[in-house]
Amino acid sequence: MKTVLVTGGSGFIGRGLVKDLLARGDRVTVLTRDEKRAQAALPGARVAYWNPMAPGPWFEEVDGVDAIIHLAGEPIAKRWSEAARREIVDSRIETTRLMGEAIGQAKRKPSAFLCASAVGYYGPQPGDKALDEGAEPGQGFLADVVVRWEQAARAVEERHGVRSVQLRIGVVIGEGGGALDKMIAPFKFFLGGPIGDGKQVISWIHRDDVVGLILLALDNEAVRGPLNVTSPNPATGEEVAQAIGAVLRRPAWLRVPEVMVKLGMGDAAEIVTTGQRVQPRRAEELGYTFRRPLLVPALESIFGR
């Protein structure tokens, strides 16, 4: 049994993670800005208030826990105004820096610090270029944010000797949230299809495997540094659209022009108009068995087919 402190516990990934931690007998405290909502969503977990942008009494929650899993961060799928860019940066880099400060002040420090990261680290890349954890960072706003985010996470190990893992999470699908909710909406109205030419590669992963890989990183002391949290079978935008259409029994022929996406999202359009072929090499080396490695069966499990 471990005592685990979780941020972002009431989010799409966090809810599944907290449920599995509790099911295996761990004691979980969730840091949240909305204690009532979090307690209702996470029965069995202890909740505590935090202001992720400032030091406070929440620092005391760090002292004595076995591990911290830091998943908090503002959504990126929105137009990147200057204010939105600041929120994206601060909610990742500043909160991670503050968590490191709290760990530094703890009398009994955790043995592991698992911090969310993203495949955005690699930036937009050609579809035929395979990327493992040793690949160089890419270019652009998101890549720059993730590089700085991971630097803040690594500093916890460099300064305080706490094992640090950076979870480079791909496009997460699952029931009740995540990217899939937005992806399936047009299909319900028979308007589904790929974005642009559909050649961009989507490094997706089922939420069950996100949780599974986080638990692997939590329990296995050999895991440190970057860990690609993606399916071993990435798919193109065209393939994703066809798979969703097949499972929902809807057509998938109506392409969304890239220019329309850029008009609506501005620079943030790169999230859906570009991609990267990310391979979970480290997970495979560690012997992780993916629960949902193939796209169509993963979608069928979500839709009950």
Rank of each mutant, 00 (worst) to 15 (best):
G245V: 06
L21Y: 09
E300T: 10
G287Y: 02
G140P: 03
Q125E: 15
F12M: 11
R27P: 06
A152F: 08
E82I: 06
R250S: 11
R163L: 11
R108Q: 15
T29E: 10
F290A: 04
G138L: 11
A38K: 03
L286K: 04
I214T: 13
A243N: 08
A106I: 09
P137Y: 08
P186E: 10
V272P: 04
A269H: 07
N233T: 02
V201Q: 05
P43V: 09
W80S: 05
I13H: 00
L71Y: 03
R250L: 10
T96A: 14
E238K: 00
V89C: 00
I88N: 08
V156S: 00
R291F: 03
G123K: 01
S81D: 14
L5M: 05
F113H: 06
R250K: 14
E133A: 12
A268G: 06
A252C: 04
A54Y: 04
G176F: 13
K109I: 13
D26P: 05
L31E: 00
I103V: 15
I68M: 07
W149T: 06
G177I: 05
I173N: 08
D267C: 02
G11L: 10
A185C: 07
L42H: 08
P110H: 11
E175M: 09
P110E: 10
R163P: 08
F113A: 08
D63S: 12
P110W: 14
P234Y: 02
I195N: 02
D219E: 15
A130V: 08
G212R: 10
M53E: 11
T236R: 00
P126C: 13
M53K: 01
R86E: 06
D197E: 14
A152H: 08
T236Y: 06
R282P: 04
L131W: 10
R159W: 12
L263H: 09
A41G: 01
Q166T: 07
P124Q: 15
A222D: 15
P280G: 10
Q276L: 00
V147Y: 02
Q105I: 00
G170V: 06
L191I: 00
R37D: 05
R305Q: 14
V229Q: 04
E82M: 12
E133K: 14
V256T: 15
A246R: 15
